[in-house]
């Protein structure tokens, strides 16, 4: 029997299918590989208040791989930060949902991102603010494995360890694909866990589609003080819809009517 959070995660994926199908744009499969991490964060881990999105003591989240924002928008809508109907304005003129995350327009969104490689630095700034102001909040970031090619990630990794940022956790969405194909063929981030360890981080590796395992890893990270945490999430790009797995064109592609029906049904929905 499927858990409550697994149901949520499937519902978020269905929302993404619906968004991409109806608005004819967006990045579906990068959204699916982080769907379970986003679910763990927004429906279990993070202390947030949809009625008060700017609450100063809230936990913060930065989607460094900003192109996966459809799944984040779906999570924010289902948490009640804005009406679900807004999802279907994605990438349209006057929408509160930009093609890549733009914090000033979207309630509940903590960071503007989209250009890869920047999120860990932004999150480090948020974490440093908590440290200076003696706030108890946590800061979470998701980076892609392809994104690890950006040098700025490693500038931030070095600085965060140097500053002993125990309130900062980075999830690496290790789905083995980037826009142009297999990560291992295009760039060479492996071994990912050893790199973060060498930069001074506490490192765990989990199944990125096992929500309980993700939650357990975050709790374990909270127990580590004086050191930032990296959680390498082994994920599958397109996870949840059979025809999207292993087919990298779904990095950015629009569903046909037939594909839409199959995707929704595979995700437990009704067309």
């Amino acid at each position: 029997m499927m858990s409550r959070l697994d149901e949520v995660s499937r519902a978020l994926r269905r929302d993404v299918v619906e968004m991409v199908y109806r608005t004819k744009d967006g990045h579906p499969s990068p959204s699916f590989s982080v769907a379970d991490i986003i679910t763990a964060l927004y429906f279990e881990i993070m202390r947030i208040d949809p009625a008060n999105p700017d609450w100063d003591d809230r936990d913060r989240f930065v989607l460094s791989k900003g192109h996966a924002c459809p799944i984040l928008y779906a999570a924010l809508a289902r948490r009640g930060f804005f009406a679900k109907e807004e999802l279907f304005t994605l990438r349209h003129l006057n929408s509160i949902l930009q093609g890549h995350p733009y914090a000033p327009k979207t309630p509940g969104l903590d960071a503007t991102t989209g250009s890869l490689g920047n999120g860990v630095s932004v999150a480090l700034g948020m974490a440093l603010s908590a440290k200076i102001r003696k706030k108890a909040y946590q800061v979470y970031v998701i980076v892609g494995d392809g994104e690890l090619g950006e040098g700025m990630i490693w500038e931030a990794a070095m600085a965060a360890a140097h500053h002993k940022m125990g309130n900062l956790t980075v999830f690496i969405d290790n789905n083995n694909y980037q826009s142009g194909g297999m990560v291992g063929k295009i760039s060479g981030p492996s071994p990912i866990d050893e790199k973060w360890k060498a930069f001074g981080w506490h490192v765990q590796t989990v199944d990125g589609h096992d929500i309980d395992a993700i939650i357990a890893a975050v709790k374990s990270a909270h127990g580590v003080t004086g050191q930032p945490s990296a959680i390498v999430c082994k994920t599958v790009k397109g996870n949840g819809v059979s025809f999207m797995v292993g087919e990298n064109s779904w990095h950015k592609r629009v569903y046909t009517d037939a594909e839409y029906r199959v995707a929704i049904e595979e995700l437990g929905g009704v067309v």
Binding site: D56, A111, G125, M126, L128, M152, E155, A156, M158, A159
Partner: peptide, 16 residues
């Protein structure tokens, strides 16, 4: 690390 520095500045400015 100037790029990191400006990114960190962004995070600081968005949190008080």
């Amino acid at each position: 690390s100037e790029q990191n520095g400006v990114g960190v500045a962004s995070g600081l400015a968005s949190s008080g």
